[in-house]
Simulated assay, not measured.
Amino acid sequence: MDLIRYYIGSTSDIGKRLKKHLQNHKGYTARAKDWKLVYHEVFSTKAGAYARERKIKSWKSRVMIEKLIN
Protein backbone atom coordinates (compact mmCIF):
# COMPACT_ATOMS: atom_id res chain seq x y z
CA MET A 1 0.00 0.00 0.00
CA ASP A 2 1.38 3.39 -1.01
CA LEU A 3 1.51 6.12 1.57
CA ILE A 4 -0.57 9.12 0.58
CA ARG A 5 1.22 12.39 1.21
CA TYR A 6 -0.37 15.79 1.35
CA TYR A 7 1.38 18.96 0.28
CA ILE A 8 0.03 22.12 1.86
CA GLY A 9 0.98 25.45 0.35
CA SER A 10 -0.26 28.71 -1.06
CA THR A 11 0.14 30.19 -4.52
CA SER A 12 -1.44 32.72 -6.83
CA ASP A 13 -1.37 30.29 -9.79
CA ILE A 14 -2.36 26.73 -8.89
CA GLY A 15 -1.77 25.32 -12.39
CA LYS A 16 1.75 26.73 -12.59
CA ARG A 17 2.58 25.52 -9.08
CA LEU A 18 1.36 21.98 -9.74
CA LYS A 19 3.32 21.86 -13.01
CA LYS A 20 6.46 22.94 -11.14
CA HIS A 21 5.99 20.17 -8.55
CA LEU A 22 5.71 17.60 -11.34
CA GLN A 23 8.96 18.71 -13.02
CA ASN A 24 12.44 17.44 -12.18
CA HIS A 25 13.91 19.42 -9.29
CA LYS A 26 15.28 18.94 -5.78
CA GLY A 27 13.24 19.16 -2.62
CA TYR A 28 10.25 17.59 -0.90
CA THR A 29 7.92 17.62 -3.89
CA ALA A 30 10.54 16.08 -6.20
CA ARG A 31 10.15 12.67 -4.55
CA ALA A 32 6.75 12.04 -6.13
CA LYS A 33 5.72 12.57 -9.74
CA ASP A 34 2.02 11.96 -9.24
CA TRP A 35 0.88 15.08 -7.40
CA LYS A 36 -2.77 15.95 -7.95
CA LEU A 37 -4.97 18.69 -6.59
CA VAL A 38 -7.55 17.31 -4.16
CA TYR A 39 -8.65 20.47 -2.36
CA HIS A 40 -8.22 24.21 -2.58
CA GLU A 41 -9.53 27.41 -1.03
CA VAL A 42 -9.56 30.92 -2.50
CA PHE A 43 -8.55 34.00 -0.52
CA SER A 44 -8.71 37.68 -1.40
CA THR A 45 -5.33 38.42 0.18
CA LYS A 46 -1.96 36.71 0.29
CA ALA A 47 -1.89 37.24 4.07
CA GLY A 48 -5.19 35.41 4.47
CA ALA A 49 -3.99 32.49 2.38
CA TYR A 50 -0.71 32.26 4.29
CA ALA A 51 -2.53 32.37 7.65
CA ARG A 52 -4.76 29.49 6.54
CA GLU A 53 -1.74 27.53 5.31
CA ARG A 54 -0.03 27.94 8.71
CA LYS A 55 -3.23 26.91 10.50
CA ILE A 56 -3.59 23.68 8.49
CA LYS A 57 0.10 22.86 8.90
CA SER A 58 -0.19 23.42 12.66
CA TRP A 59 -2.69 20.56 12.90
CA LYS A 60 0.02 18.00 12.10
CA SER A 61 -2.80 15.51 11.71
CA ARG A 62 -3.61 13.36 8.71
CA VAL A 63 -7.09 12.78 10.15
CA MET A 64 -7.84 16.53 10.31
CA ILE A 65 -6.52 17.09 6.78
CA GLU A 66 -8.61 14.23 5.42
CA LYS A 67 -11.71 15.62 7.19
CA LEU A 68 -11.06 18.96 5.49
CA ILE A 69 -10.70 17.32 2.07
CA ASN A 70 -13.83 15.24 2.45
Rank of each mutant, 00 (worst) to 15 (best):
M1Y: 09
M1R: 12
D2W: 06
D2A: 09
D2M: 06
L3K: 09
I4K: 14
I4H: 08
R5S: 04
R5E: 07
Y6L: 11
Y6S: 07
Y6T: 09
Y6G: 04
Y7S: 03
Y7N: 03
I8T: 06
G9T: 01
G9M: 00
G9K: 03
G9H: 00
G9N: 01
S10T: 13
T11D: 08
S12N: 13
S12F: 07
S12Y: 06
D13N: 15
D13Q: 13
D13K: 15
I14C: 10
G15T: 02
G15N: 07
G15C: 01
G15W: 00
R17W: 02
R17L: 05
R17D: 04
L18I: 15
L18Y: 08
L18V: 15
K19F: 09
K19I: 09
K19M: 10
K19A: 15
K19V: 05
K20T: 08
Q23I: 07
Q23P: 04
N24A: 11
H25I: 04
H25R: 14
H25F: 04
H25V: 05
H25A: 11
H25D: 04
G27T: 11
G27S: 09
G27F: 08
G27A: 10
G27I: 11
Y28R: 12
Y28P: 02
T29E: 10
A30M: 03
A30S: 15
A30T: 09
A30Y: 05
R31K: 12
A32G: 00
A32D: 00
K33E: 06
K33N: 13
K33V: 06
W35A: 06
W35K: 12
W35I: 08
W35F: 06
K36D: 10
K36N: 12
L37H: 12
V38Y: 02
Y39I: 03
H40A: 01
H40P: 00
E41A: 14
E41T: 07
E41C: 01
V42E: 14
V42M: 09
V42Q: 11
F43G: 06
F43Q: 07
S44I: 10
S44R: 11
S44Y: 06
T45A: 11
T45H: 11
T45C: 11
K46Q: 15
K46V: 14
A47C: 05
G48R: 06
G48K: 09
G48H: 03
G48F: 02
A49K: 10
A49C: 11
A49P: 04
A49G: 13
A49Y: 05
Y50K: 13
Y50L: 14
Y50I: 14
A51K: 14
A51G: 08
R52Q: 15
R52I: 04
R52M: 08
E53H: 12
E53R: 13
E53A: 11
R54Q: 13
R54L: 07
K55S: 11
I56D: 01
K57G: 08
S58N: 09
S58A: 14
W59K: 06
W59R: 08
W59Q: 06
K60C: 01
S61N: 08
S61T: 03
R62D: 05
R62Y: 06
V63R: 13
V63Q: 11
I65R: 04
I65C: 02
I65Y: 00
E66W: 05
K67V: 03
K67E: 08
K67C: 02
L68D: 02
L68S: 06
L68P: 03
L68E: 04
I69Y: 02
N70V: 10
